[in-house]
């Protein structure tokens, strides 16, 4: 019988590193990757608590279903976000620094 604390710590670490990345980097693609890190941290904690409540069997699958929903929404977010970045870089000559892109039609 092993402890599940290491998974909770890993989820917390992934979320914090992703948050630092979102606040620190200015390249839009790095922002997307950091958001993926944050989503993975939250997913790992959901799966961990589903495992911690494995004795209530059908209801424990709700955590896994929530992770499935989050994964599909994250894939949609990545696709639309990358399309936005590509469209943005065409109108702004390859500049995807989110600090200098402050104008509409920019």
């Amino acid at each position: 019988m092993y402890s599940l604390d290491i998974f909770l710590l890993l989820g917390l670490g992934l979320f914090s590193i992703g948050l630092i990345g979102v606040l620190l980097r200015r390249n839009a693609l790095f922002l997307l990757m950091a958001v993926e890190l944050m989503l993975n941290g939250a997913n790992l904690i959901l799966v961990t608590f589903a495992r911690a409540h494995a004795d209530s069997m059908p209801a424990a699958m709700a955590g896994h279903v929530a992770v499935l929903v989050i994964i599909s929404v994250a894939a949609v977010e990545a696709a639309v976000g990358i399309a936005l970045i590509v469209a943005l870089s065409r109108t702004s000559q390859g500049n995807i620094n989110v600090d200098t892109l402050g104008e509409l039609q920019g």
């Binding site: 599940l4 495992r51 209530s56 069997m57």
Partner: peptide
């Protein structure tokens, strides 16, 4: 410590 629960029988 958070322990994994024993898995329920189907």
């Amino acid at each position: 410590p958070l322990r994994p629960a024993p898995m329920a029988s189907p």
